[in-house]
Design a protein around this nucleic acid. Structure first.
Length: 215
DNA sequence: AAACCGGGGCT
DNA sequence: AGCCCAGGTTT
């Protein structure tokens, strides 16, 4: 646990807020979402809004529920499905990652950080996300939302830098054992609806009383 | 360390 | 017109 005096209280209030206000309906957060579906969602969500991903995710995983189904079709068939998302390079991510999962991991999405990092298109954030959301492991992933929320609440210098070690350290020290997946989803939902980049809703924030940033 | 990818929404 | 979005790869 963190040495920061407000840490436990912050996590507690955030998780309570998440229970009531989180986007629990998102298809890739379903309890029975497969590890491959989680990986697909994480790749789609890179620099892409949730609303855009919602438009294509379910049809994609219905057509391509596993790595075998991805490599079985032409590049054009994959590209066609994700075209509305932009960042067309991800077509190659899906194909290369699927090939590696089949050849190196028997068709199953790996559950070790180093193996996930070897998948094309998966960096530190995506690897940690898959560990937490697909395999239930205690791993933290810091994106722009998480970095912004943590740095604001705890008054860090690395304001909105997802690559700053300061933010990853704080995320790890504050993360509740056994509930990393919920905690990360909570931080993201909170960062995208309340603790927003511009015009944050501090006047309607459940943790404003212990936040270094709130006025 | 910086460039680049990308369509869509918001300002 | 400019900035941002569940970042990562390439130069």
């Amino acid at each position: 646990m963190s040495s920061h005096p407000n840490c436990d209280a912050f996590v507690d209030k955030l998780l309570t807020w998440y229970d009531d206000n989180g986007r629990h309906h998102l298809p890739w957060r379903k309890n029975d979402a497969s590890p491959f579906e989680v990986l697909v969602a994480e790749l789609m969500l890179q620099q892409t809004s949730v609303e855009q991903v919602q438009e294509v995710f379910e049809e994609f995983v219905e057509k391509f529920p596993n790595p075998d189904s991805v490599v079985a079709v032409s590049e054009e068939e994959i590209s066609e499905e994700i075209e509305p998302l932009g960042l067309q390079k991800r077509t190659k991510y899906f194909r290369k990652a699927s090939h590696r999962i089949i050849e190196q991991h028997g068709g199953h999405v790996p559950d070790e950080r180093s193996e996930l990092l070897d998948l094309h298109g998966a960096g530190e954030y995506t690897a940690a996300s898959v560990l937490a959301h697909a395999h239930g492991k205690d791993a933290v992933a810091v994106d722009t939302n998480v970095a912004r929320v943590l740095s604001r609440v705890f008054g860090l210098d690395a304001a909105d830098d997802p690559n700053a070690a300061e933010n990853w350290d704080l995320a790890e020290r504050s993360s509740p054992t056994g509930r990393c997946s919920d905690y990360l989803h909570a931080l993201i939902d909170f960062g995208s609806t309340v603790c927003t980049a511009s015009n944050p809703k501090c006047s309607d924030c459940p943790v404003a009383d212990l936040c270094d940033y709130a006025e």
